[in-house]
């Protein structure tokens, strides 16, 4: 069963994650869904695929009133990110979905009406969650050509989407990265293959290294904390991406 775990709490301002699911069938990539709460409003970052909707919905509803979720944030257009959209809208047709303008006419194939979507311009935007500022940070071409991270200055948390992802073996089920060197072996192939542009990667590393980040939260795999955040950015800056095709 997927479970909601709180990773940050400061009064009514919280971050929670519905982390990897040991019971999920093997043919689906495992994902983390992040919930940002501020008072009576919540945002769900990368709500996940249609097939895991019931697990995510149940995990969230077991802890909080799911009607507090007013916003969905889709880092990019992938099915593991947002194919559950129609089901979320069944539950609450008023939900707003924030996403890159680039996918504005693609993601509606998963559901929604013209009123559902809020387009984020290439340079990024600041969303307000009950007064809390959340910055959509451009991460284009990492891997999607219209791609955003979500940064919470106050909580010092960066939701990084597919950046920082690791495809972990089942025995490594810890929520956080415990041993960077061991962990990163499960990240290398993913980043070399899915990330397409060294130029985009360096631009991201340069911009993100200037942010205060306590936790870097990817959509797949474990969360980087403290020094491991810097370690990851440096490792990524040095990695040759767009080169992962096996021959």
């Amino acid at each position: 069963m997927k479970k909601l775990e709180f990773i940050y709490e400061d009064g009514a301002h919280k971050w929670a994650v519905v982390a990897r699911d040991p019971e999920k069938p093997n043919h689906l990539i495992d994902t983390n869904e992040y919930l940002v709460l501020n008072g009576s409003e919540a945002l769900l970052a990368d709500p996940g695929g249609m097939e895991i909707f019931s697990a995510v919905f149940s995990a969230i509803s077991a802890e909080i009133d799911p009607y507090t979720i007013r916003h969905l944030f889709a880092s990019h257009q992938d099915p593991d990110v947002i194919s559950s959209l129609a089901l979320w809208l069944d539950f609450n047709p008023e939900l707003k979905c924030h996403l890159s303008w680039l996918w504005g006419s693609f993601i509606p194939h998963f559901g929604g009406t013209a009123d559902t979507f809020v387009a984020i311009p290439d340079e990024g935007a600041t969303l307000s969650l009950g007064g809390l500022a959340l910055d959509a940070i451009p991460a284009h071409y990492l891997h999607s050509s219209g791609n955003f991270n979500l940064y919470d200055r106050k909580a010092r948390i960066l939701f990084s989407g597919d950046v920082g992802a690791a495809l972990l073996p089942p025995e490594e089920s810890s929520l956080y990265v415990e041993n960077f060197d061991r962990h990163i072996r499960h990240s290398r192939d993913f980043h070399r293959r899915w990330m397409g542009s060294n130029k985009a990667k360096l631009s991201w590393c340069e911009r993100v290294s200037r942010l205060d980040i306590d936790m870097l939260c990817p959509q797949h795999g474990a969360i980087y904390r403290g020094e491991d955040v810097k370690r990851f950015i440096n490792w990524f800056a040095d990695l040759d991406v767009g080169s992962g095709i096996r021959d």
């Binding site: 919905f57 149940s58 009133d65 799911p66 009607y67 129609a86 069944d90």
Partner: peptide
Amino acid sequence: RQRQQHSHFMTVMKANKSVRKWAEPTLARV
């Protein structure tokens, strides 16, 4: 499509009562 959505919400209905109550109105709508 409706039937598929219905089955996803039926899965939610297998959870405990506190979760079920959130899915019930949606299920009725579907």
